[in-house]
Design a protein around this nucleic acid. Structure first.
Lengths: 115, 115
DNA sequence: TTTAAATACCTTGCAACACAAAGTACTGAA
DNA sequence: TTCAGTACTTTGTGTTGCAAGGTATTTAAA
């Protein structure tokens, strides 16, 4: 049995839960295109694949949390810059609360365990 | 479009990521049976369904992270007490690190956003 | 003795979604 | 005109949370 696999798999699971939240957070401080979002996440050790990010952005657009505009690049093909909508900001506030609730829940379980 | 649904769905996503971790944490401080684990999670506002918990415990058992023993109850049917194995404790240490990495990642993105 | 309520555990089918892999398209330099 | 770099997209697969429905045990009331 591959033990590192158990951990790796679980890191994926954890990442999963906060991906939408992270992306909304990033877009709340400025418009970005997909590759740049992926890079910003990588900078804080949240590794996410293209095949995850693109469909997710499309989904958030469909839900009305994001919009996008095309913008020329000086290097390479045009970029799809995503921006957060008013609805997106409202939802982000809810996710903020959800994150705080969750992390304080985990902290309280950890306290009991590592007394 | 049902907006509360977006949040609810995402809380589910977040929960998802930390479920195995929470359960290992709980079992690291003492043996418990499934209903009791569900209740302890509910106490810290992590709501998880039976249909999630039972298959998960079985999976963790198969992976060798948990074991169980049957124990009579003074009220109702016998209970399946789960206990964490040595391998489980090793994996838990890895999940601890993963959790700290993830939560500090989120905090650093939040700092940029809410300057 | 039968019925009901409480407790506990388990299974099935569905839907969501992360990701690897493969593909399309644009640009500029060799 | 070929290649490398950048960017966006789609398909298929595997995992897994959960609602719903089910089985089994115990105790107590009717």
């Amino acid at each position: 049995m591959d033990n590192t696999g158990i951990i790796e798999n679980n890191k994926t699971q954890m990442r999963r839960g906060v991906l939408e939240y992270s992306i909304l957070l990033i877009l709340a401080s400025g418009d970005e295109y997909a590759s740049s979002i992926i890079q910003k996440l990588k900078d804080v050790n949240i590794i996410v694949a293209e095949g995850t990010t693109y469909p997710l952005l499309i989904r958030l657009k469909k839900l009305g949390l994001l919009n996008y505009r095309w913008e020329e690049s000086t290097q390479g093909p045009p970029r799809k810059y995503y921006m957060i909508t008013e609805l997106g900001r409202q939802q982000l506030a809810g996710l903020d609360a959800a994150w705080e609730e969750l992390s304080s829940a985990i902290e309280s379980i950890r306290k009991v365990t590592y007394r």
